[in-house]
Nucleic acid binder design. Structure first.
Length: 819
DNA sequence: TGAAGGATGCTCCCG
DNA sequence: GCATCCTTCA
């Protein structure tokens, strides 16, 4: 069945070019070497296509070949293609691969993330609804800072509202396309905390508007709003994009879903002028002047959905066929990445999720190496093992660049780093402490923003006293008051230093800052109206940093860290030069967009011969010959916080599944028996997920049992039955009581798991539960319902289990029965 | 106004 | 264990 295919025309594909004889398709070379489902995914033509792509099943290949095929057969102009990827990096790679396939004719496609695509649209259309095209993009730090001020002003802490809490609620609401007004209508306004929240939400939104700024969530939500409020604007994009492709569809949230929905709507042909731009499409002249909706291709794998915590809605993919009737579904189940051993382990783990459709990945590359397991006494011990193993593999000529180390939380990287430095292993941390999150970089960018978008008060306030100019709270308030009285912006108030009623020294400082900003504005946004060259970004930034005294202050400082800060600023200047090189037409706005959306400085170069360290989330979409999954412990993976969220444990299992399936040839699983967190050492337990892997797949160099009994190298180890909670009075530091293993019925009994895998998605229908009801859960046992919240498919039962404690469960799919 | 020092709380994941 | 916040004092 997986036999490589000579260009075979599959059904509907032929209709794409009725005249072209089989075998002479212009895209024939693009179809070579594809297996049958892949071929179908590339050549199917129709309004909607869902490609269910298991891990490593070649979906990037399918997507790029599909795009290339559309272009090659002249079914689409490049400008009619919109491809959405999950990260900027993925977008860059996809563009490169398409270009490689069809050459320069790929120019003009939009291949980008949701956020970049929306910024592009908003920059063009912002003036439609009260913004200008030079709007600022607030990252989560910026909105946090703004909310902090608002929470303080509204004295909301008295109601238990924190900036972080408010921020995450607002973010969730925006992902659901709720705004302050619509939320207020259905909120319980008799609750004072709720009332204050609504006030803050409203104030936050109007502050953003005043600052001519969007936060991350707004980029999507406001674009949807724009399309809905101004159909003629939406029509422009509907006519333009005839083929929309979305990768990682399982991780889209409701707002993103709605955006795609808006874009794929048919165009109501109010004006007949529209056909010129879509010239390739042929319409029956006698039918109504309506352009049919764009063709939509989505690719996803519900087993790899790992962003529910930030609003991703797995139903977008599971209900695709309902949303797009007549949609074609193609399943890619052959894995080309991993060995059978790795796949078997991953399959066994994910099979424990009760709310999934069964799907089996297979490969024909053979069993390969056993999975290597290791249990360290401490996280340093574990890190040492990883380092030793990496060295051994390197000596066996596995390049460093083909090895990666994953962990659940960023804080785990520190121990690894320490050991790697000592072992002289070249490594690089992906993500983590972000370059653009550093204070000095944010300061520098705030200077640039103050020039590009003077309405952005937050940015101007940020640089007001950086470097120290003796401008404190008092002065800042008088500037704000002056601005309010005169009805001018905060930025413009800086130009009136003598009228502010402050001391002469401070007047001079303000006037100096104003002069620097004005001078930089002339460079980056010349008043003559001509467009400054991209090199003006470098020029303007250097001027701002030098004439403001920012650089000098760092140079004079005796704080050793300030030297590193100077280097970072040099790095930023280098980034602007690079930007100018890559974007001959780039403006200051393009530059700011790029740095706001490319959050990590890691896109630089991966081929540089270093081991990659990253979180399991960051690992999505990547692959390596050798993978080390570290910290495979309870409370880490699954993470402690996930236990009380509906669907949390399942999401953690999917995350672990994603981590395992990144490995091509070698997989290492490691954990530590003790882990230091918050400065204190505590005992750790092996993750329940370890037990879900068939035991004969793991070769334990040192199993939890070994560490437990201090070297009794019996392989009873992990799988051994534990004496029930017994503490066997050992005085040893790593005695039994420190390392209780998760409860287990019988050693080696995989069969137990088999009956937990239902053939289809579990569905309790509209099971009714009320407070006081008793229920039984497959995993947690019996318990009593305390409350029921939510509506429809999202109803959640708050259950107090007799032994497992309080949990929240999604009533529709939880493995529960009413007693 | 700003430096120093202590108290606090936090950390799960991302564009 | 660390960064950030807050108070205190010069």
């Amino acid at each position: 069945m997986p036999d490589p295919i000579k260009p075979v025309i599959v059904g509907s594909a032929a209709s794409a070019r009725p005249g072209a004889p089989a075998g002479e398709r212009p895209d024939a070379d693009l179809l070579e070497g594809l297996n049958r489902p892949q071929l179908e995914a590339v050549t199917y033509r129709g309004p909607a296509l869902l490609i269910v792509a298991g891990a490593g099943s070649g979906k990037t290949r399918v997507l790029t070949h599909r795009i290339a095929s559309l272009l090659r057969t002249r079914e689409a102009y490049p400008s009619q293609i919109l491809a959405i990827t999950f990260t900027n990096k993925a977008a860059g790679e996809m563009r490169e691969r398409v270009q490689h396939l069809i050459g320069d004719s790929a120019q003009g496609m939009w291949i980008s993330t949701f956020h970049s695509a929306c910024v592009r649209i908003l920059r063009r259309e912002a003036q439609q609804f009260g913004f200008t095209k030079s709007f600022t993009i607030y990252d989560s730090g910026d909105s946090r800072a703004l909310l902090k001020r608002l929470v303080k002003e509204h004295e909301a802490d008295a109601f238990g509202l924190t900036p972080a809490g408010v921020q995450s609620r607002i973010s969730k609401l925006k992902n659901e396309l709720a705004d302050a007004d619509s939320y207020a209508r259905q909120a319980n306004m008799s609750d004072p905390a709720e009332r204050v929240f609504v006030e803050i939400f409203g104030a936050y939104q109007s502050a953003l508007q005043r600052a001519n700024a969007f936060d991350f969530d707004d980029l999507i939500a406001q674009t949807v709003y724009l399309f809905r409020a101004f159909p003629h604007v939406a029509d422009v994009y509907r006519k333009r994009f005839r083929h929309i492709l979305v990768d990682e569809y399982q991780d889209t949230n409701h707002a993103q879903y709605a955006l795609i929905h808006e874009l794929t709507r048919p165009v109501q042909g109010s004006g007949g002028d529209s056909f010129s731009s879509g010239g390739m499409m042929i319409f029956e002249p006698e039918t109504t002047p309506e352009v049919e909706g764009a063709s939509l291709t989505v690719v996803g794998d519900s087993d790899q959905s790992i962003y529910a915590f930030r609003g991703a809605d797995i139903r977008n993919i599971t209900e695709f066929e309902r949303d797009y009737p007549g949609a074609k579904v193609v399943l890619l189940e052959q894995n080309y990445r991993s060995t059978q051993t790795i796949l078997s382990a991953a399959n066994a783990v994910i099979a424990n999720n009760f709310d999934r459709k069964d799907k089996k990945l297979w490969t024909d590359v053979g069993a390969g190496e056993a999975i290597v397991g290791f249990t360290g006494y401490s996280q340093h011990d574990e890190a040492q093992f990883v380092a030793d193993e990496i060295e051994a593999l390197h000596r066996a000529s596995v390049p460093y660049s083909q090895m990666a180390v994953f962990y659940r939380t960023n804080s785990q990287s520190r121990a690894l780093e320490e050991i790697f430095i000592r072992a002289a292993i070249p490594y690089k941390i992906m993500g983590g402490t972000k370059f653009y999150d550093r204070a000095e970089i944010k300061d520098a960018l705030a200077y640039v923003v103050a020039v590009a978008n003077p309405a952005d008060e937050l940015a101007v306030r940020r640089i007001l006293n950086r470097p120290r100019r003796g401008i404190g709270d008092v002065t800042e308030t008088s500037i704000a008051r002056f601005a309010a009285e005169r009805g001018i912006t905060f930025r413009d108030a800086l130009g009136h230093a003598p009228e502010l009623g402050v001391g002469p020294k401070i007047q001079a400082a303000i006037a100096q800052l104003d002069a620097v900003l004005t001078e930089a504005t002339e460079i980056m946004l010349p008043s003559s109206g001509e467009i400054a060259p991209p090199s003006s970004v470098t020029e303007g930034l250097s001027l701002l940093l030098n004439k403001s005294g920012y650089m000098d202050a760092l140079r004079m400082s005796r704080d050793p860290q300030d030297e590193a800060r100077l280097e970072n600023l040099d790095e930023l200047i280098a980034v602007t030069r690079e930007f100018a090189r890559n974007n001959p037409e780039g403006t200051i706005l393009d530059f700011l967009t790029e740095v706001a959306l490319v959050a990590d400085a890691d896109d630089l170069d991966d081929a540089s011969g270093t081991v990659s360290l990253m979180t399991m989330h960051t690992a999505k979409g990547l692959e390596y010959d050798a993978v080390f999954v570290t910290g495979v412990e309870e409370d880490l993976i699954p993470h402690r916080i996930s236990a009380n969220e509906p669907g949390g444990p399942q999401e953690e299992r999917r995350l672990f599944y994603v981590a395992l399936t990144r490995a091509r040839k070698r997989l290492h699983l490691s954990l530590a028996m003790t882990r230091a967190q918050f400065g204190e050492v505590s005992a750790a337990m092996p993750s329940r997920f370890l037990q879900e892997i068939p035991h004969d797949l793991i070769d334990w160099r040192q199993s939890p049992g070994d560490v437990n009994s201090r070297g009794g190298m019996q392989s009873r180890a992990l799988n051994a039955r534990r004496p029930g909670g017994g503490s066997g009075g050992s005085g040893k530091r790593y005695g039994d009581d420190l390392v209780p293993l998760p409860r287990r019925e019988k050693s080696g009994d995989i069969a137990k798991f088999a009956n937990r895998i239902p053939a289809k998605v579990r569905d309790n229908g509209d099971l009714q539960l009320a407070p006081g009801d008793r229920i039984r859960h497959d995993d947690f046992g019996e318990g009593r319902v305390d409350a029921v919240t939510g509506e429809g498919a999202k109803r959640v039962a708050h259950v107090r289990f007799d032994s497992a404690g309080a949990k929240k469960l999604l009533i529709k799919i939880a493995p529960i029965v009413k007693l």
